[in-house]
Nucleic acid binder design. Structure first.
Ligand code: FES
Ligand code: FES
Lengths: 144, 144
DNA sequence: TTTATTTAGGATAAATTTGTCCGAAATAAG
DNA sequence: CTTATTTCGGACAAATTTATCCTAAATAAA
């Protein structure tokens, strides 16, 4: 469904959000530990999320990653997925045709579009805030 | 969403079904052309679908692939996807946790499971027959 | 200013997926 | 039986994704 990079990116962003809600910055090392992801690979992903403006990064001692607290509520899962995996999952044909087009549909078009749109709506309506809150109160987990 | 192998496999199976409904066998070469897929790669996929019992293959002149006509109605999209991509898409965690488990859920579990289950239900309820029929009457297309 | 710490970024490597090549095996037809 | 045709199956190659390594740049604190 999502790429490994996207899975790591989502988990990392949620973890950073939890810390940011406590006005704490968090280091790459800690993120990778808590998210159970390879450190150097996670660094690349965070780097690109920083370029996308979803998270902020700071170098040096006391450096690390954080998220503007005012954004935590407005950032949606959709934004993270889109930043890492692009929009193929939201607009691409289920059978890989170059373009998904209702006027020249593939055999699964009608049935696939419904699923795809549901996914999109779900991602658009899911805020980083609610994901972070669920994690903070111990309702959900980033590794097992 | 689906692997390339699975996309090709679905399209190939639908095409074979259309031909089989006319009691015609179809060669690898023709399938790859109609489905717009690499010939040798398609051969591997068809080979595995044959081993899974979804399609039948016959060597030699007049050989090719076909589907038992009585099966066309009972084979579901789910069977094809499961044969090629396995069950990860149906039971796997959206964030890649080793196991998707409601008692130790990841942050997206509740919202993801609904989408995943919808996809599964859709695939289980979509028969090869209806997909092949849509293609035969020119309502849908395998390439563009 | 020096040092220690942390992210940035480029090069490289490993793993997986996608794709190719070719001889072997089966088989229909002359 | 011989030949032509078609799938089978193993080895190999290319492309993409995932992951690592190392040096540079920034920066906080002594
Ligand atoms: S054309 Fe295939 S999903 Fe729309
Ligand atoms: S635990 Fe992640 S989707 Fe169920």
């Amino acid at each position: 469904m999502f790429s490994k990079a996207c899975e790591y990116g989502i988990k990392a962003t949620i973890y950073i959000a939890v810390k940011s809600m406590r006005q704490e910055r968090v280091s790459l090392k800690e993120i990778a530990e808590e998210v159970d992801s390879p450190v150097a690979f996670t660094a690349k992903i965070l780097q690109s999320l920083a370029k996308s403006g979803i998270i902020d990064s700071h170098k040096g001692p006391t450096g690390g990653f954080q998220i503007d607290e005012s954004k935590i509520d407005t950032i949606k899962l959709h934004d993270i997925v889109h930043a890492i995996d692009g929009d193929k999952i939201f607009v691409g044909c289920g059978l890989g045709l170059e373009q998904c087009d209702a006027s020249q549909p593939c055999p699964v078009h009608d049935k696939f579009v419904g699923i795809r749109d549901n996914l999109k709506i779900m991602l658009e309506n899911t805020s980083l805030y609610e994901l972070a809150t669920g994690l903070e109160i111990g309702l959900t987990h980033l590794k097992r």
